[in-house]
Design a protein around this nucleic acid. Structure first.
Length: 802
RNA sequence: GCCGAAGUGGCGAAACGGCAGACGCACACGACUCAAAAUCGUGCGGGAAACCAUGAGGGUUCGAGUCCCUCCUUCGGCACCA
């Protein structure tokens, strides 16, 4: 059989029949929304990683369809991205052109692996009909006070402008190799931290894989603490955030972020200004990543002449700037207690600062940190009226005192930061805002959306770090929608994450031109039953999308508080060298080549059989070969096909076992063992030497989700009606699985003495009796006293003897 | 550094706290064949055996690949790649 040819044939038939189009509503059918993350349509086309998750989840979707659900399984492309922009610059082509070409390739390739996609719902984030609504939704964020322009730090190259972290290598620009610095720039931000608590807490209502929940909770990093105001001797003040207010009597210095405005305000009073300036320059060269946790060697620079006053006891302490303090995180300043924070301990040692211990314990070698003292009844010392209290009690009382003094308030702080939503790049959705001298920032009116991304001559960011859009004067110049005065358009574009934050909603109503999706359509499909995607999207994309949906939910535009019921992540496909497949490392295998050598069905089967779906797996050609062989063995069953339209006694147990195993394993995303169950069934059939039509139909149906083309073909060859995709998923009968007898391992003190068949209906008492009177057991006991008998039903009996 | 995940035969891997290695690959032998390929069949962790084996070391348990603690190694993410 020519697999390549029959696969092409069936793909065309499915397409012509609109076989996988799912209407929003079908009488008598329950909806299931199964989603794979839409890909970025890179010029390299579909890779093995895509194939693994796409084909496995396609099998899942096909099974759900056979089970009688109305399944929506859509596909689209996330077109905005740096790669298209870089290719555009390199090839002197419009990114639109490049992306269009790539999308065609992607869709073609997705068809060629036999995906059961509803193509009537296809979307593409750079389509004006789509990004119109991305822009409209941004405006809703703005109208509800969740979008604002704020000074943020960015990577800056003197030649290429603002850079992504990815574009900075060891402090130099990856394109022109000039030295990069950190620069402050006004950026649109979405106030995601306002949703921090709900994003963490509402995970309890989802069925995400446990490690995904944990990752998100850690990323959000909610901490309860106190924000305290410190006065500066001679005037001025600043605030710090701490989760360890109980250590406040141990403060011996303070550290503020080098770029803090406070430092500029104090310039005249800082005695070592040139030294401070030098330190700030050095800091500007470091990325935030280098500055924060990666860097173990904490550095700082004292602000000579500046002292902060500890509000609890009036103690005056020195103030430093230190690059490990980040301006945009927390309040951009910290209190330092060397005895109870290891970082402060090392800093104090380095700069010869005193240490005051305030919690009992050993601090001679290293700090006694909160993990060491919390919840252990440790008591405060050297803390005036709070000495002698437990840390937990002191936390409460010290906070109360500071609040009463009017210098502190309880606060929640998040590790997660607000979402920087501006990009100074061409290839993204224009941010639909207009700046008017009189009215400030004004959104583009709805009837003028979308703000089309204009064609430009050059796609490179400008040297001053603005988007290339800023060079199109007649596009930028406009009038204020509010007062009609001359005004200017925002030239920043949105990040790639924008379009992907709500695409799952658009699928529900992809061709709606009046709204982003009707509430009715959304209600029919949301929440998504199964959302599959890469582990690399666990924290960002998945949080952005949840945040975006929560906002729409709050303003009444989304029917659900949580859009994804269940989230799973596939493991990576690695090259034969054990590294992630990529073009650069030359370990890539082209799926199309595999298809033409072995067939899409063989590839699909191998992608599911290769190993546990959630673990990474090493690609291996022999595996596809083996799966191809399995398919040809199934094909050859035609030779031993006999009459019979009921499952025969010969294969009853084998078939019901397979139905149960395949059904349950697929629901539990254990595709590899589902396939092994099919292999076991095939071996069993060959042992029996014949198969009747009822049995053959059952086998083909069970195999259909994994090998849809071959099973359609074999089904049609027999002239079975209706078509296999109209079949009902087989069910198993538990009674057919119950055997009369089962083999028990009989152990004495955990060592196997013998194996015996016992009735499956025997009670524990009977099994105990049967085993302890067994001749081999009696011989091995050799007069020892039986202490206890442990009976594990259908498995083993363990006799403990002395 | 921080967060997350994973370490089981020659290889990909199975295994509700209960007989470790299902299923598959590779390999070996046999059948078919003049021969080879394909196909089919048998065997296949180590050890002569007692036994020893799930990255290393401890612990809980009648019983640990699985649960707890310490450590080692590898992979993914770390906010302007998406």
């Amino acid at each position: 059989m020519d697999y390549v040819q029959i696969e092409k044939k069936w793909q065309e038939i499915w397409e012509k029949e609109n076989r996988f189009v799912a209407p929003n509503n079908v009488e008598g059918k329950e909806n299931k929304y199964i989603l794979i993350e839409f890909p970025y349509p890179s010029g390299r086309g579909l890779h093995m990683g895509h194939c693994r998750s796409y084909t496995a989840i396609d099998a899942y979707a096909r099974k759900k369809r056979l089970e009688g659900y109305n399944v929506m399984f859509p596909f689209g492309t996330d077109a905005y991205g740096l790669e298209a922009e870089r290719t555009a610059i390199r090839e002197h082509k419009a990114p639109q052109e490049i992306v269009e070409r790539n999308i065609k390739t992607f869709q073609q390739q997705v068809r060629s692996i036999g995906m059961s996609i509803d193509w009537s719902r296809t979307i593409n984030t750079c389509d004006p009909e789509y990004y119109k609504w991305t822009q409209w939704q941004f405006i809703q964020f703005f109208k509800h006070g969740l979008a604002e322009k704020r000074e943020m730090t960015v990577n800056y190259c003197p030649n290429c402008g603002v850079l992504a972290n990815e574009e900075v290598e060891d402090g130099t620009c990856c394109q022109c190799h000039a030295e990069t610095t950190q620069k402050s720039k006004a950026q649109w931000v979405l106030k995601m931290t306002q949703y921090g608590e709900r994003l963490a807490d509402d995970l309890k209502d989802t069925d995400f894989m446990e490690h995904i929940k944990t990752s998100q909770i850690n990323w959000i990093g909610k901490s309860e603490g106190v924000e305290v105001e410190f006065q500066i001797v001679g005037g001025g003040k600043f605030s710090i955030f701490t989760t360890c207010i109980e250590t406040i009597y141990g403060i011996t210095f303070m550290v503020v972020a080098p770029e803090a405005k406070l430092v500029d305000e104090l310039k005249d009073r800082i005695e070592n200004w040139s030294e401070v300036e030098e330190y700030r320059r050095a800091t500007a060269k470091k990325s935030e990543f280098d500055r924060s946790e990666l860097n173990k060697d904490k550095t700082g620079c004292i602000l000579k002449g500046i002292k902060a006053i500890n509000p609890v006891n009036g103690k005056e302490v020195p103030v430093y700037i230190g690059d490990f303090v980040i301006a945009s995180y927390g309040t951009g300043a910290v209190m330092a207690v060397p005895t109870h924070d290891q970082r402060d301990y090392e800093f104090a040692d380095k700069y010869g600062i005193e240490k005051i211990q305030v919690i009992e314990g050993d601090v001679s070698e290293k700090a006694l940190e909160k993990y060491d003292y919390l919840g252990k009844g440790c008591k405060l010392i050297n803390s005036e009226e709070f000495s002698g209290l437990t840390v937990e009690e002191a936390k409460k009382q010290i906070t109360e005192k500071l609040v009463k003094l009017g210098v502190a308030e309880k606060k929640l702080n998040f590790k997660m930061r607000d979402w920087i939503f501006s990009r100074q790049r061409y290839w993204g959705e224009p941010i639909p805002m207009i700046h008017c001298e009189h009215c400030g920032w004004v959104p583009v009116p709805d009837d003028q959306l979308p703000v089309h991304l204009p064609k430009v001559e050059s796609y490179e960011p400008t040297k001053d770090g603005e988007s290339p859009l800023s060079l199109i004067e007649d596009w930028v110049a406009t009038t204020c929608p509010h007062c009609g005065a001359p005004a200017r358009r925002e030239t920043d574009t949105m990040p790639g994450w924008a379009g992907s934050s709500w695409y799952f909603m658009r699928y529900c109503d992809a061709n709606n031109s009046n709204e982003f999706a009707s509430k009715e359509a959304l209600s029919q499909w949301l929440p998504i039953d199964l959302y599959n995607g890469g582990n690399e999207h666990t924290t960002r994309h998945l949080l952005y999308a949840r945040f975006w949906n929560k906002f729409l939910y709050d303003i009444g535009l989304s029917p659900v508080n949580e859009p994804f019921k269940r989230r799973i992540s596939q493991g990576l496909i690695l090259g034969s060298d054990g590294k992630k497949m990529s073009k650069s490392s030359g370990n890539g295998v082209d799926p199309l080549e595999v298809i033409s050598n072995y067939s899409a069905d063989a590839l699909r089967l191998w992608m599911s059989f290769i190993g546990d779906y959630f673990e990474s797996a090493v690609w291996n050609d022999d595996g596809v070969k083996a799966c191809h062989k399995f398919l040809t063995r199934v094909e050859r069953l035609q030779d031993i096909l006999v009459d019979g339209d009921e499952i025969s006694k010969d294969l009853e147990v084998a078939i019901h076992t397979a139905i149960k195993k395949v059904s349950q394993d697929m629901d539990n995303i254990k595709f590899n063992t589902a396939i092994s169950a099919l292999m076991i069934l095939l071996n069993e059939i060959n042992k029996v030497g014949k198969i009747n039509h009822a049995e053959y139909k059952t086998l083909l149906t069970l195999l259909n989700p994994f090998a849809p083309h071959l099973t359609e073909e074999l089904w049609t060859i027999q002239g079975y009606a209706p078509r296999i995709c109209d079949m009902k998923w087989p069910t198993w009968n538990e009674e057919k699985l119950v055997k009369d007898e089962i083999e028990y391992a009989i152990q004495i003190n955990n060592k196997i003495i013998t194996r015996e068949n016992f009735s499956t209906t025997a009670t524990d008492k009977e099994l105990e009796e049967l085993s302890t009177t067994n001749p081999k057991v009696l011989e091995s006991l050799n007069g020892k006293q039986i202490v206890k008998v442990i009976v594990i039903k259908n498995r083993l009996i363990n006799i403990i003897a002395k």
